[in-house]
Design a protein around this nucleic acid. Structure first.
Length: 736
DNA sequence: CGTGGACACGTTTTT
DNA sequence: CGTGTCCACG
């Protein structure tokens, strides 16, 4: 057994698998066999170190990663892998919180709000508190609150620490937001982590229980943890103060692939691991089994430009391979044409099938021009990401019905569907119910049960509300008497008239919506079928069970798998591509302002994150890597002339081959544009780095330029007023 | 109460 | 350019 598990590992991998006794950090470069080490280590614990599956907690960020890990371990050690906790941060926390909810004043059937629910709630709060929504959008307020939660700062602390008017407003809505969540017996994604940390800190007996239970804690993608997740790991591992020795901790990650700082991920957690856990051991995996040396050397060259990163250099035993291709196209259409031509050529030579190709870009809107050409040329493709199944309006409406049924305290869901489809309940009626509920200190749903007492209601509104309430109550009765999610879903869609309204519509979009509802019904049925098998208690799947599953599963757009007809080309963002690999990869839009993104240009730390993103993108490629750019790219109808991405210049010539039509940085001469050159009035020419004086904003520095003549724009960083994008034709700026 | 047109805005997003 | 939101009107 031991031989089997260790046989095909290289030396550092083997060390990571067998390491014993002290905290372990595995620094795993791209393609270095990270998942293999993690799964082998778990298998090794089970078969060679006499650890029982129930003592293992393995944490990932995605359900997919968790599922794969569990499956791979089960392949090695058999079905007893089932009792292991291999789950996402969020599912692990839900499991703990459900068991201990009452200690935090929550009902154990609490609802989990997703981002959209939270935005809705925050919008309501902003309105109630007369907050200027123009200056403080619900999104801004929410992300501020989320940042605080990621740092484990509660609303009381936020209030006491608030120094600026902004911080005061955020602290105020934060408190109200938490009160409303609590009243609705709901938590948001951040709370799942934060509440669990609070639980473990406030209740030593609960902490001790988990310390005794989990003797091994493994964390994947450690570079993506935020402070709250970092603390959660610390609390779960324990410090031995309760007489239980700390669990053996193993974290795996790569600081060069940290690309979620904007969501609160803190690269510090992995960089400072040895400081956090003083007796820690570090194993570095640098041998890459995925890419050719030319691809790795190029990626290394780019990432090395980041300051203060732990040194690490990927290498491969597989040989140089072809050089990386850098292609410059005249515009984004030519860029797409080039991609299609190249794909065709490679397929004609029988080297590759469609499924071997991935097109990766910085922002979702870049897929459009590529899709257009793909459709025209008949290239089969799939866009991964974008609007996901569970984010579609109709799916969210349907789920709101189910949530309103399962958790009557869930005001946000009840109010979402109150007038969907239209049933004559307007803002005024809703407000009257809301006022009544607040006066009586009851939930919105409870208020609906007392409509006759609400005198502010017009008769017509009262009738509509009563009818709505009767329908919802009927659905709740079904739920109480054990009807399954699929049955309740279909009943809700029928009695509410939701399906009817969609079916009656001539809008082709609504036809798709009907199909999506049908697909959701499929999901409920599949869930009902698999549920008893997965759980030891024989209880059939309830609506709440279903909703919990759904709330923690974001995606349904899967990465296309192998397919009889050569599959399809995959299109996705750089972020989505992390963790994947393809024989041939195109990274498109290699232009300053596109990638690195415009908004990162002014900040050193954001530029470093962009560079890590470039590293992630390039290291997805196994055999061929193409970096493409367009001299001109139309954004919102206006052509932009972005300079070549700075990342391209960072790759030494020896690893690359350049092709395409080079266009002069300024002016259109020498390019093969069809469009006649316009003769425009000369406006001021600004270059990056120029200092300017603006009538209103004062002194500033040019950090980016775009367009020419009439349409010339400059992004200028003004010290006090922040960054502004100005049309130079009008802007009252003066070059210094 | 419902709707059309003006208007503002526009990264990345594992849960 | 495309989408989502807000207000004035029917």
């Amino acid at each position: 057994m031991t031989a089997d598990l260790l046989d095909d590992l290289n030396e550092p991998q083997r060390r990571a698998v067998v390491h014993e006794g002290t905290p372990l950090l595995v620094v795993a470069g791209a393609g270095s066999g990270k998942t293999r080490v993690l799964t082998r280590r778990i298998a090794y614990l089970l078969s060679n170190r006499n650890v029982s599956p129930g003592e293992i907690l393995a944490i990932t960020f995605t359900n997919k990663a968790a599922g794969e890990m569990k499956e791979r371990v089960a392949d090695m050690v058999g079905p007893r892998a089932r009792v292991m906790w291999v789950s996402t941060f969020h599912s692990a926390c839900v499991r703990i919180l459900r068991a201990e909810a009452q200690r935090l004043g929550l009902k154990s059937n609490f609802t989990i709000y997703d981002t959209q629910d939270s935005v809705r709630l925050m919008t309501l709060i902003a309105k109630d508190h007369n907050i200027d929504i123009k200056a403080y959008s619900a999104k801004y307020l929410l992300s501020s609150v989320s940042n605080l939660k990621n740092e484990l700062i509660d609303h009381e602390t936020a209030v006491s620490r608030a120094n600026t008017p902004q911080e005061e407003i955020v602290a105020e809505v934060y408190g109200e937001y938490q009160r409303r969540l609590m009243r609705a017996s709901a938590v948001d994604f951040d709370d799942l982590i934060g509440h669990t940390v609070a639980l473990l800190q406030a209740f030593p007996d609960v902490a001790e229980y988990y310390h005794r239970k989990f003797r091994h804690v493994l964390v994947d993608e450690y570079q993506d943890t935020n402070h709250a997740q970092y603390m959660l790991v610390r609390e779960l591992v324990g410090a031995g103060k309760d007489g239980v020795s700390p669990a053996e901790l193993c974290v795996v990650g790569d600081s060069d692939q940290s690309i979620y700082a904007f969501r609160g991920a803190n690269i510090r957690n992995i960089v400072e691991f040895e400081r956090d856990y003083p007796n820690a051991t570090t194993v570095v995996l640098e041998q890459n089994y995925r890419s050719t040396q030319n691809i790795l050397s190029s990626a290394n060259a780019v990432i090395e430009k980041n300051a203060n990163r732990p040194k690490k250099k990927l290498w491969t035993a597989e040989g140089d391979g072809p050089k990386v291709t850098i292609y410059t196209a005249a515009d984004e259409h030519h860029e797409s044409d080039y991609i299609v031509r190249t794909i065709d050529d490679l397929i004609d030579n029988n080297e590759y099938a469609f499924k071997d190709f991935a097109i990766i870009y910085r922002t979702n809107n870049q897929s459009r021009s590529i899709e257009e050409v793909f459709i025209r040329k008949g290239i089969p493709y799939k866009v991964v990401g974008g609007t996901r199944f569970y984010e579609r309006k109709e799916i969210r409406d349907a789920l709101a019905y189910l949530r309103a049924v399962a958790n009557p305290a869930d005001d946000v869901s009840v109010r979402r569907i109150l007038n969907v489809p239209r049933r004559g309940i307007g803002d005024k009626a809703e407000e009257a119910v809301e006022m009544f509920a607040r006066r009586e200190r009851i939930t919105f749903s409870e208020a609906l049960n007392r409509i006759p007492e609400i005198h502010a209601l017009a008769t017509r509104s009262a009738t509509a509300l009563t009818e709505f309430n009767t329908m919802i109550n009927h659905l709740r009765t079904m739920d109480d008497s054990g009807a399954g999610p699929s049955e309740i879903l279909m009943k809700a869609m029928e009695t509410s008239g939701y399906l009817k309204e969609l079916s009656a519509s001539r809008d082709p979009q609504d036809e798709v919506r009907v199909e999506n509802i049908a697909e959701l019904e499929n999901v409920t049925r599949e869930f009902e079928e698999q549920f008893p098998a997965e759980n030891e208690d024989e209880r059939p799947a309830t609506l709440s069970d279903f909703l919990e599953r759904v709330s923690l599963v974001a995606d349904s757009d899967e990465i296309p798998t192998d397919d009889a007809h050569g599959g399809v080309v995959t299109l996705m963002t750089l972020h989505t591509a992390k963790g994947l690999e393809f024989p041939v990869v195109f990274v498109t839009g290699m232009e300053d302002g596109v990638f690195p993104h415009q908004r990162a240009l002014g900040s050193a730390s954001e530029l470093e994150e962009e560079r890590r993103l470039a590293y992630v993108g390039m290291t997805r490629a196994m055999q061929r890597l193409f970096l493409t750019r367009a001299s001109a790219r139309s954004t919102w109808g206006q052509p932009n002339y972005n300079p070549e991405s700075r990342f391209l210049a960072e790759i030494p010539d020896e690893f690359v081959e350049r092709h395409g039509e080079e266009t002069k940085a300024l002016g259109l001469s020498g390019s093969n544009f069809d469009r006649p050159q316009k003769r425009d009035i000369q406006v001021m020419v600004l270059n990056i780095g120029d200092r300017v004086l603006h009538d209103k904003f004062g002194m500033g520095t040019v950090i980016a330029t775009a367009g020419h003549n009439d349409s010339a724009e400059a992004t200028i960083d003004f010290k006090s007023a922040g960054q502004k994008r100005l049309l130079l034709r009008y802007a009252p700026v003066e070059k210094l």
